[in-house]
Design a protein around this nucleic acid. Structure first.
Lengths: 244, 244
DNA sequence: TCAATGTCATGATATCTATCATTGTCCAGT
DNA sequence: ACTGGACAATGATAGATATCATGACATTGA
């Protein structure tokens, strides 16, 4: 709540509201939105909470998680600037998805009632949102193959490529522009930190990557790609798609 | 193409067009739709094909699949009457998802151009579609936990409960109202027919189910539920959600 | 009727991965 | 500089699952 950034002057051009909302509605959202800064590790919203609205990520990185009674956390999606996380729907629903900031993140919250009004008055916004969910659904469908069929070695290779596509490389150091603990990588794959470490060490021996604490340098992208070649059809097409 | 059923008289009230389209647009879709009968095993559309439009399932059951170069098929979603499968998007995209009829199925196809017009002229249809995708995305996100973290035993138990919820029971025989081969069940879980058989046999020994060829009787639903109890938080909430 | 075929069932074995245990390393706070 | 705590790396072991092999059974078509 420190220094609110107005939608009118906001630099995050990939925001759905800014891209697809009418000038009138951008102003309305600007007034009723609740912008907050979340520090690394802070929850945007918790699993099991009530349905309330959408969070538009203005700046930062977020993991969307689902945790069972056994306490094992599953990272179901990673989101960064311009993406949307949160609950849709109305009534008294709850659902077992939470979101946690991976680094300092600014997000704008709009509650469901106001979103409903916005959708009803901005058909293009609704359409864009539909297409967003549709694309996310496809990506998640394709991701099922990764989780169901690949070996851990393949999953780790895929994940490294996925992280590069999603977050890019630090322009200076040429490392993945995202810092994840071994535990967090394991949480994406349903594995363990030990297993992730072992496989990363193996990749390092093969000169595919170089580890430097949590920083990971990609040395041989094609080599990583070859590891998942048997499953590559998926990846190709996913890449074509996620390039928008 | 034998006996076309008109949207005007169609009994499938759960169809999105019928539920949310204006009278005018129901007529338009009625004229331009392409209704076809697909027999068991026939493709509605194939993996790697171009983006073209949506299929509204009027009657029947369909598996949505994704297959890699290794030939291993992954069932990413099951759909039945009233559901929508197919490609959204425009341009020259392709994507690695296909759909195959699990039993004789009637589906109505509407191409993307016409869908776009329909969305632009029926805000409530667009909104409903957005909510549909949003819900499907949640379900798929939750499903990631199943694939990533559960043991095969838990996955099979979960799948049996999932099939019961999705397709219900045959009212006469009290068996799951869907016939899947061991291979197909394995394809949902990224496993093998042998493994599925073994676990089903174990469940039969425990009097949780009874096998009769491909027909499966659920004898003790709570028993199946107990098997996945450690992960049940998910399941609970998923159930609350999918009950709409 | 009889093969031919496909599916299911089950055992034996090899492989992969989780778990447990230990050590090393970095960093923050005293 | 010391110390405790978190995280990473690595080895040993146990457990889970895929793979391979075989036989039973049902269905199809000649």
């Amino acid at each position: 709540m420190e220094k609110q950034i107005s939608c009118i002057t906001c630099e995050t051009k990939s925001c759905f509201i800014i891209q697809h909302g009418s000038a009138e509605w951008i102003s309305i959202i600007d007034i009723c939105k609740n912008q907050e800064l979340y520090e690394r590790g802070q929850y945007l919203f918790r699993e099991g909470s009530r349905v309330f609205g959408l969070y538009f990520i203005q700046q930062g990185k977020v993991k969307v998680i689902s945790t069972g009674l056994n306490g094992k956390e599953q990272i179901v999606r990673l989101a960064s600037t311009g993406h949307v996380v949160g609950h849709r729907g109305f009534g008294f629903e709850v659902y077992p998805i939470g979101a946690v900031a991976l680094e300092d993140t600014i997000a704008c919250f709009v509650d469901n009632d106001k979103m409903y009004e916005a959708f009803m008055n901005n058909p293009r916004l609704t359409y864009a949102m539909m297409m967003f969910y549709s694309l996310e659904l496809r990506k998640t469908e394709i991701r099922q193959r990764l989780l169901a069929q690949m070996t851990m070695r393949e999953k780790v290779a895929e994940t490294l490529l996925h992280l590069k596509e999603t977050f890019g490389l630090d322009s200076k150091k040429n490392t993945l522009d995202i810092l994840l603990s071994r535990q967090e990588i394991a949480d994406m794959l349903g594995s363990t930190p030990e297993q992730v470490t072992r496989i990363l060490s193996e990749f390092e021996d093969l000169r595919l990557i170089r580890k430097e604490g949590k920083q990971i340098h990609i040395l041989n992208e094609k080599g990583l790609y070859d590891i998942i070649a048997a499953h590559s059809m998926n990846r190709n097409m996913q890449t074509w798609h996620t390039s928008d």
